[in-house]
């Protein structure tokens, strides 16, 4: 199912950015950021069509081009179909930004296997499936892939063995993919946000949420727009000599 919003007709000169997880949080901010900087944005969302429609409206109000598509990135057939649809979109796919991610926090000793593998399936396997498709889609003309890690993938937190494993895996996968993709002119990098003001953060335990800023030198949590600007930097030509890297955006927390 697709929803489309456009204020201007797409031209072949405009690059396309695929933003996975575009309906909420960092993905939403990234879709808006990319559209504001001249990309035609194709946004994938898992289930919240209403939220996607709101993203479409905001981008249209700002004069940008956006097309939403319901796609479950843990389903490789849906990923293939989504990329097949992308090939029929006017323009050239230049950037793929994967912002989808889930948490199912719990102590390792009592965590179900399904809670562990489910998080890996979305955060790591889903990222792989999208990246694999992106390599094929951009193999002729190059481009940039930006994956989403987390500071939890650098310094795991208690209660997040599944999330930490998935986000640590994204960092290592970024390095491996970057080496493979370089001969194709495709750069691969990842972002590692710390605490960011999103639904995921607001769903945390209130006591934990209240205390996080004690450990952040800048004294506040990040804003989705700040992560989005970093995503646009890694996705675009200003980072042309950067690949295989993970950019930490955490207000100094892990420094």
């Amino acid at each position: 199912m697709t929803q489309q919003s456009r204020q201007q007709q797409p031209t072949q000169q405009q690059p396309i950015a695929l933003v996975v997880g575009a309906s909420r949080g960092i993905g939403r901010a990234t879709a808006i950021e990319m559209a504001a900087h001249g990309y035609r944005v194709v946004g994938w969302y898992r289930s919240d069509a209403a939220a996607d429609a709101e993203v479409a409206r905001q981008i249209a109000d700002d004069g940008g081009w956006y097309q939403g598509r319901r796609t479950d990135i843990t389903d490789q057939q849906q990923v293939r179909e989504g990329l097949s649809d992308l090939r029929r979109t006017d323009g050239s796919l230049q950037a793929v930004i994967v912002s989808a991610g889930i948490t199912r926090d719990g102590l390792a000793g009592t965590m179900s296997l399904e809670a562990f593998t489910g998080v890996l399936q979305t955060n790591l396997v889903g990222s792989f499936l999208v990246a694999r498709g992106a390599l094929r889609a951009m193999r002729k003309h190059g481009g940039s892939i930006v994956l989403m890690s987390s500071t939890s993938g650098i310094r795991g937190q208690a209660g997040q063995t599944n999330y930490a494993a998935s986000k640590g895996g994204v960092i290592a996968m970024t390095q491996a993919l970057a080496k493979e993709a370089a001969p194709l002119g495709i750069r691969v990098n990842s972002l590692a946000p710390g605490f960011v003001d999103t639904d995921m953060f607001r769903a945390m335990d209130p006591r934990t949420r209240a205390s996080v800023t004690d450990h952040i030198p800048l004294g506040r949590v990040g804003r989705p727009a700040e992560i989005a600007r970093a995503a646009r930097f890694l996705a675009g030509p200003d980072s042309s000599y950067i690949t295989g890297q993970t950019l930490v955006i955490d207000g100094g927390m892990t420094s």
């Binding site: 293939r80 390599l135 094929r136």
Partner: peptide, 18 residues
């Protein structure tokens, strides 16, 4: 080996074979 990616992509995009 890099050409393998092109072959796999052609099979998928042109013939729908995975």
């Amino acid at each position: 080996s890099l050409d393998t990616l092109e072959i796999v992509s052609i099979l998928e995009e042109e013939f729908g074979v995975l």
